[in-house]
Nucleic acid binder design. Structure first.
Lengths: 233, 233
DNA sequence: CTTTCACTTTGCGCCAGCGCAAATTCGTCT
DNA sequence: AGACGAATTTGCGCTGGCGCAAAGTGAAAG
């Protein structure tokens, strides 16, 4: 039996009673996933939904022509793979452990039970979906209206905002991330990302090394991200 | 009192009993919105949610720098402005009547009541949100990986699929839509859209005139949309 | 220690598609 | 009917960022 202290501290469960936490954990099992392993695959029949207890997960979509892009990163305490709450039969993307992870898993059959027994749990799931729709809309707007450098700057700011760890040099992204990964988040190529980061390093905006990125001047980067094309009207 | 025959035929309400339909309609009021009028504005406090009874609605986001883009078109029978189901306080986009519309409106306070009294209604709303998240994800993928001509072709195919009306010349989009509108759906300029449509007209793929677009050769357009860059691997 | 492999950097040429401009067409209003 | 304004078409030049290529670098494995 899993201990309810595992999840009691998470924002999604903050409002729940001890009884409710118990009901939620019944039916869940925990598992470890080594770095770079797939937790579920794109197109696979969606049989379970998940909560990330520890680590970071990359949600990756692969196009028919083989290009990959990263839909989002999942942080500790977040639900993912909740296809069941969206009425989907299969996972629209794959989930890959960005670092070694610990994951809680529920069978989909638990969903209806939980929805009835612990409405706050379903509410949290729907809230999550709503927030992601919102974020995804914003990404569409960005992709449609902003230049590559602005999109990359914005992506870095979001990463440090959501998954940053303060160091003496600035705020570092808490998990290994390659230039290729950043390119797949922003719809560009690793070459362009590399060029941009190099230039920004010279300007003192960012730092980092292999698989590591640190934002040293968030304000400066923010300016870059907002650097809306000067308009004549 | 609104008649339940208004909504009984809609897919979202197909599974509901007569009693439930009555419960849903209690608290709703209907209103007319002339073409090009705003049903709600971006950023406005979300006080209501809506169902489109008749017409077509354009959901438009405006960026801080004044660019517009069209998040989606709403068809008859669809819910929209359901910020309350996503836990949002304000509308993230504006809704504009693309033609004269008839709309059902509920105050947000009805949401909790309906959620408890008619679970199928809430389920339909969540299903809608899930489907839109899915669509929006797909748009991100497209924006990131496909060329402008493929995106425009794809957008046209989706429009005729979702809102097409069969004519003798092909399938026509059921509401007035400008080149500018198509540009705002695909993240390009009206000039490029105009050039593409002109070229496709010559090739016999599409037809149309001012504010009208007809797809005459869906298969051909589909080929164009799929025309994935030939890859070496 | 050195070998290997994944990741990163950088240079160079090219082209899809944008910005700008101007002419044209069509629906609508008076 | 005529005039106005919105929508559309088309031409032209330019450039952001991609494709291709190749060299450099750090980390992990043997």
């Amino acid at each position: 039996m899993l201990d309810r202290s595992l999840i009691a501290g998470l924002p999604a469960f903050a409002a729940m009673s001890d009884d409710e936490l118990g009901l939620v954990l019944r039916g869940a099992r925990s598992s470890r996933h080594p770095r770079n392993s797939e937790i579920f695959s794109q197109g696979q029949e969606a049989a379970s939904f998940f909560l990330l207890l520890s680590g970071h997960v990359r949600v990756v979509q692969t196009t028919p022509s083989g290009e990959q892009l990263i839909a989002r990163y999942i942080n500790e305490g977040e639900l993912f793979g909740i296809a069941v709450a969206m009425g989907r039969e299969s996972y629209p993307a794959a989930a890959v452990a960005a670092v070694d992870c610990i994951v809680l898993t529920w069978a989909n059959s638990e969903w209806t039970r939980l929805q009835a027994a612990v409405p706050a749990f379903a509410a949290a799931a729907y809230q999550t979906i709503g927030a992601r729709l919102q974020e995804t809309q914003e990404r569409v707007v960005e992709m449609a209206t902003e230049q590559v450098d602005q999109r990359v700057a914005q992506a870095l700011l979001r990463l440090v905002e959501r998954s940053g760890r303060k160091t003496d040099a600035g705020v570092e992204i808490d998990f290994p991330i390659t230039r290729q990964n950043i390119a797949e988040m922003t719809g560009t190529t690793l070459h362009t990302v590399s060029r941009l980061l190099s230039a920004w390093q010279v300007d003192g905006l960012v730092g980092g090394s292999r698989q590591k990125v640190t934002v040293t001047d968030p304000q400066g980067l923010q300016l870059l991200a907002e650097n809306r094309r000067q308009r004549s009207d």
